[in-house]
Structure formats: C-alpha cells, structure tokens
Nucleic acid binder design. Structure first.
Lengths: 248, 248
DNA sequence: AAACTTAGTGTAAAATTTACACTTTGATTA
DNA sequence: TAATCAAAGTGTAAATTTTACACTAAGTTT
C-alpha cells in the first residue's frame, strides 16, 4: 500500500528532523532506515533523517513535531527550524529514486524539505520503531557516512546552528536530565564544540549566568567524591544580540 | 492572463525577498504593490515583499535571485535564506484571497514560502517596476504598517537575523558603496542596532578587525573637514562560532 | 579672519578573560 | 583500618578587552 492520507498530503513539501541526544560522552543523532513497506524485494539499508511529507492542515512546526512524537513519544521539546532545502536534484541519487518509486504515489514530484533540529534528553524515552521506520539508531554525530537524499547537508547545517547557539543561548540543558552535575554539562560543551575548555573557568562562568540552581542532591554510586546536582532555571532571557552576551 | 510558465511552476512553494538598502540615514526595505495584472476592477494597494512561485528547474536560491534581479537588475549580491514559512492560514486574509483568485491559476493551493534577505548598495541601481510589480517603494524598516500575507513576520525575522549577523560577520559593508567613510559605516551600525555606539571606540575596533583598507581618497563637496574613504577587504574569515569573535 | 561643522585622536580605570595546582571527599583495596 | 584512587571543588594574579570621556585639525561659509 502506498501512502495513506494522500488526499490530505502535500506532495511537494516535507520536513526532516535532526534529533540530537547526549549520552554523557558523545553527541548522537537519531537516524532511521527507510521504511520499504511491503517492497521486500528491494535491498536498501541507507540511513536517513526521520521525516515525512506535510499534511494540508498542519503548520511546518506541527509536521516536524508529529514526526518527532511518532518516533520518540516525546511531545514538548526543543524543536527549531534549520531552513529549507530545495535543490532540484536532491532526490535524484539512484537508491533514492528506487525508494521513491516504491513508496510514493508521485515519485517524480519535486519536493522541498524543511529541516528541523530537536534537542532531547536521550534517557527520557524509548525509541519506537513503529510507524515510519523499522530500524532506528543513535549515531555519533561525527559520522561522515553517506545518508540518503541531501540529509548530510541538513545534518551539517544543524550542527553549525547548534554550535552557534550553544555559546549564546541556554540550550545545552535541553540535552541533559532535569538534574545534572556541572561535569556532565562540561562534557557536553566539550563534545559539541569539539574543544577542551578550562574546567575551572567553565564552572565559574556557567554559575555566573544565573541559569543554574543548586540542589541538595548528589551523584550516587560513583567510586569517588560525588558531584552536586543542579537544575536549570528559566529566567527572562534578553535578546541574544546584546553585544557581549555569552551564554557560558 | 493568469500566470505564465504554469507547466514549469510549482504551485506550492514560493520565495519572498527582504531587500535591504541604506541611504546614509535610514535602513530601507524594498516593498511592492501586488501586481493585479489586468484586473482593473480590484482595489488593492497592499504592500508586500517581492516574491514569486518557484520554477521546477531552479533551486530556491536561484528563485530568490531571479526575483531580486528581475526587480533591481542586480546580479551578484548578498542573498541568504531566512527560513520557511508555512502556516496553513498564511494566505487567508480577505484581500490576499481576492488577489490570489484574480491572479493564480490555483488560488486555493497551499503555499509554503521561503524567505530570503538581500543586502544591496541602494545607489547601485535603478528600480525597475517592470515584471512583478508596478509600484515599488523603499520603506523605512521600522514600518509597522500591515503588509500582505504573512510578510510582516518574514520581515521581522529578517531584521532579527541581520542584527545578529552585524556584530559577528562582515556584512555591513554590503550595504555601502565600494568606498565609504568610517562615519558612513558608523551611522549604519547605529541605525541597524538602534543604538548609540561610542564613536571613538567604534573607529578603533572597526579598524582593528583588519577588514578595512584606507584609500588616498576623501569625501568631496562637504562644508567641513572631508573624511577619508576606506574599502572593504576580504580576508579569510574563520568560523563565526569562535567564542570571542565580535565583528566590530 | 572668525565661526561653524565634522574628522580624527589617546588614555586611564574597570571589567573580563586567561592560565594554572592543590585540597577535599567518598569508595575501593591491600 | 589505613592507604590509594578518582574525580569534585576551589582562588589568584597577569593579560587583555572594554568603557568612558574631551580636545585639536581641517576645510567651508559668512
């Protein structure tokens, strides 16, 4: 069976989601194998970003949210647009064509996709391989392996934007559990910025931002001095473009 | 006659351009009155951003470039994507519907638009009211008047992005003639950032960036000491996300 | 020649950033 | 139970950057 919701689906516009998670060491991206439905004869293990055509009654953000929720069960989450990708040849690689012809009602339609990126707490949910995709993997974000369609380009754009935001907006927390140690946050920054930040300066400056509130709780089960846990506190966040603002 | 190029035009995706220019005092945006073609009976002086549906063989950037060139004659120019706008109700205001029904072959089609913003030297060209739009105006960017469709939203996004870029990337120059005085640049920064920057500090820091080269030429025809003119020099521009980089 | 207008310049105080090493705490092990 | 291990947690001095601020220079007009 080809696509459901045909009458309500826009054949020319899709969304694709770059879903980031942090396991304490590596920044991961959620990738899926394309769903071949009942086309068992096709051999295709290409990884792609989870995505879907948009429906006529939903906004772009809603479509991205639907994809994210369908895959992870997570509802309210950090989800922001990356931009639109519309190269006329973005669907013309061999395997991409094969897949489109097997699954899409209008396999030749020009499709513009709108990229989104999400930051989630990797431990907060179980991956549901239902719906779109049978195989779902958390992949190190430094992958260079070739994804389907133009998804490497979308992923690169997401990483660029994430790096730019990390120093200017309080977004790092979104990847952590509600209570976390400064060390945890520190590792996150090092991993995403691919840098080796000074530990003491990081700690002082991060605390100075006023976005952290200490709790009375400590790490448990570690074979050394347990670290204090903090929570993130929302506060009025003035316009980022204020010249000297640095998030951390 | 309704739209030309119907067979090659994608009814679901458009581009809209926020074209900025600086006249020495105010930052301006180029707005057009919708082209009603031969529908003389319709009364509609709503201003909108210049835009068009995309064609099947062109990339999004190319479509935006086509709109810009068609209107201004300018070819190579700073042109960057703002993002995609796809609210299902973005075309449903009364006058917008009237216009769509008069001009579009599929007036009910869902249209997602991709916003672009351009920075041009306002004096470098003559506006050509040919093609898309009969009436073309440079409007102060602080306008709050209501534009057609969701174009206020697109304009706001463009301004936000421009402000963020101005302090981090060498983009201000794109709005100036090839040779300009530091005062000219200073006014540009004050106008865009809606601030009152210290004149001496601005001068020192701007020169320190290494993007300016002094010429032997000076202002002419001014009733006071003439200012030296500078040119912008391209140099390797390292990744913006370097933590402490400030453009000026 | 005096008045006017904008161009162009320097410095000292304050704030921020950087580099850097030892003590504390709790768990494990000998 | 004392010693060891591993990561947590802390302070300071030097360098750099940012800020605030006022007068002289140059060319035009009156």
């Amino acid at each position: 069976m080809k696509e459901k919701f045909l009458n309500q689906t826009n054949p020319n516009v899709s969304v694709d989601c770059v879903i980031f998670g942090f396991d304490g060491v590596e920044l991961k991206v959620l990738l899926v194998q394309r769903d071949l439905q009942d086309n068992l004869e096709i051999q295709d293990d290409t990884l792609v970003l989870p995505g879907d055509l948009i429906r006529d009654n939903e906004d772009l953000d809603e479509a991205a949210s639907r994809v994210l929720t369908g895959l992870t069960g997570i509802r309210s989450v950090f989800l922001e647009q990356i931009g639109a990708f519309g190269n006329p040849n973005r669907l013309s690689k061999g395997k991409d064509r094969t897949w489109l012809e097997a699954v899409r009602l209008k396999p030749d339609a020009r499709v513009i996709t709108v990229g989104y990126f999400a930051l989630i707490n990797i431990k907060n949910y179980k991956i549901k391989p239902a719906g779109f995709a049978k195989h779902v993997v958390w992949h190190d974000y430094k992958v260079v392996e070739e994804l389907g369609f133009d998804h490497n380009e979308i992923l690169d754009a997401a990483i660029r934007i994430l790096r730019n935001k990390l120093y200017r907006e309080p977004v790092g927390f979104k990847l952590l559990p509600r209570k976390f140690s400064l060390h945890h946050l520190y590792c996150l920054y090092n991993e995403i910025m691919d840098a080796e930040i000074d530990r003491r300066n990081f700690r002082r400056r991060m605390l100075k931002t006023g976005f952290l509130k200490e709790t009375d709780e400590f790490q448990e089960g570690v074979p050394h001095k347990p670290a204090r846990l903090y929570t993130f506190v929302k506060k009025e966040f003035e316009n980022v473009s204020r010249k000297n603002f640095k998030f951390y």
